[in-house]
Write a protein that binds this DNA or RNA. Structure first.
Lengths: 343, 343
DNA sequence: CTGAAAGCGCTTACAG
DNA sequence: CTGAAAGCGCTTACAG
């Protein structure tokens, strides 16, 4: 009936029960602190008995390390970012860090939201699918909180970044489509102000140029299914339509296949090859069997958590590039089919 | 060069600059505390100048309210849960609460993971796509932390739950399929140990019984694309195959459509009607045009956050049922088509 | 309305 | 190896 008894035990309770000081209790719960095996055992026994575990908030206040990491996510409806978030959280947890999440609708909101994260004394900030202003970046830097962008980068001091090799992945796709014998190759861009879409376009068009192939057409689909549908309608409504379409992400590529099949009666890939980027789960569904560029989420998130801990130790900001891998599937004509066409 | 100058300002710094006490500074940042307009203005000005904002960790220690909420998510690869997580976080943030996230692979891990959450003194715990043991539930109850399950429930004292009306939604689907003139109706279950799958099956089979229709076949697909593929192969490989299939979620329904079309050469819905549950984004893609039961994520997450705050004030645990809505699309034959068939 | 003082639960030099 | 004491940054009765 004593309210105290129903609340969490504190270190002093454990100390009394074990007949030691609070310092000893603290040491028993601190990795590598000096405690004799005997005292530790006594303390651990008392702690179990009382259901004690150290208050992470109080510990954070005195150590000045909260062991919490801010994780900012902008678009969870995109399965790629859902995967990134899941992998990130799992890895932070394994490293003994707790993800304090921040969901934001638009990048612009970050300037007002991240300070709230900082108020919780997070040890660092991980930002996926979004970027941050220079004001915000310097604010974090002043507070000594490393910032790591995932899948975006920005030319600011003190901001780390991990991205897939978007230029390389897009170049590989250009090779694949040209080898497939395609003559009218189009590109569907994502959000225009993102480094990911720009890099994919640059890599793709650049490599086409090296192969003496001019880009046939270009539209923008803002990385969404709905906008991609409209863009693809324009693309396929032309007198002369493309015979291949590379989309800056898989969601848009899926929209392209749907529109091609159901609104234009085209066969994929016989009439139109379609490829995407991200290699989300739906890309492997039998209904699409979508050729895509695989981003290694595991390596990307490993790198991001690594940079965060590195930055925490005062390391210099870095930009890590994770290799991309072309995943060929049935939505694009392959070399042989292309050769047959030409014959 | 003074390290202090590069770190965050504290309330004492603001107090000195404004020529007041720390108490006054604290009050200026506390809703509804007694401060004169004049002093508050002085303090706010000094605070802005120093870039001060109260340390939420220290505040939480003394107020015994961290204003953080544990959010547990088990399966982000399921877009439905990604949506739930996003909506939940947005709503917590609006309520001035910060989501401390915990990603777990299997429900069983909760017993070891939630205590870590509790160590951070979260004010409550929201659990999506998973459930918890009675030991864990009573642990949270003892610590005075309300627990709210989303999309699952469990018969334990002190555990709140918010679910869609799974029984009602499944009953509506039974009506729809029977009205469509289907004679051999099958059900594809999700994870067998979840209340969601069990309730959907119970509602569906129960309503079929009331309509004097026996369930033609039943398989289990564990809520995943891959397992659903295998289950559907068994279902469609029979001498006499079903003419309608209700799947306990959309991902499995999409697998069913893919297998029916690409491995059995069937047309949907002419040869086989397929329906799902959740109404994820992919259900509205032209390639599937999937009839589904819509779960109102907005209402569900509103209710969950509401229960959490209610529980925090000592309200009794409750189970809230959010109405389900049948979303008819092209993957199921409708009344007229069914009538025509029969004619 | 305002300030001095106590205290939230912990860790960490500092002596011993 | 162990304990007494100070202090992390804040809020909140308590006087005034």
């Amino acid at each position: 009936m004593n309210p105290k008894s129903s609340l969490n035990a504190r270190s002093i309770d454990v100390a009394r029960l074990a007949g030691v000081s609070r310092s000893a209790v603290s040491r028993a719960f601190t990795e590598g602190a000096y405690v004799s095996g005997e005292t530790r055992a006594k303390i651990l026994k008392a702690a179990t008995q009382l259901g004690y575990s150290p208050n992470a908030i109080a510990r954070g206040l005195i150590t000045r390390r909260s062991r919490m990491v801010g994780v900012v996510v902008a678009d969870l409806s995109n399965p790629f970012y859902a995967r990134v978030l899941e992998a990130t959280c799992l890895k932070l947890q394994e490293a003994g860090l707790a993800p304090l999440m921040l969901s934001c609708r638009r990048s612009q909101d970050l300037d007002s939201l991240v300070p709230q994260l900082l108020a919780y004394q997070v040890d660092g900030v991980l930002i996926a699918a979004s970027t941050l202003s220079s004001t915000l970046a310097s604010q974090c830097a002043r507070a000594g909180r490393p910032v790591v962008l995932i899948n975006r980068y920005v030319n600011l001091d003190a901001v780390n970044a991990v991205t897939c090799d978007n230029v390389g992945g897009a170049r590989a796709m250009a090779d694949h489509l040209v080898q497939g014998g395609h003559k009218r190759i189009a590109f569907l861009a994502g959000l225009e102000d993102t480094s990911s879409s720009r890099d994919r376009e640059r890599g793709f068009v650049g490599r086409l140029g090296e192969l003496k192939v001019a880009l046939f057409a270009r539209e923008s689909g803002n990385y969404t299914y709905a906008d991609a549908c409209s863009a693809v309608r324009r693309l396929l409504g032309r007198r002369l339509r493309p015979d291949a379409l590379f989309c800056a992400n898989d969601t848009m590529a899926i929209a392209a296949i749907d529109i091609a099949r159901h609104e234009f009666g085209l066969e994929v890939p016989a009439d139109l090859s379609v490829a995407g980027y991200d290699n989300i789960e739906a890309a492997s569904w039998k209904g699409y069997d979508l050729t895509s560029v695989d981003q290694d989420v595991d390596r990307m998130t490993d790198a991001a958590v690594g940079l965060l801990q590195n930055g925490d130790k005062g390391g210099k900001p870095r930009h890590i590039l994770v290799p991309a891998r072309l995943e060929k599937r049935g939505s694009t004509r392959d070399v042989r089919a292309g050769a047959m066409r030409r014959a």
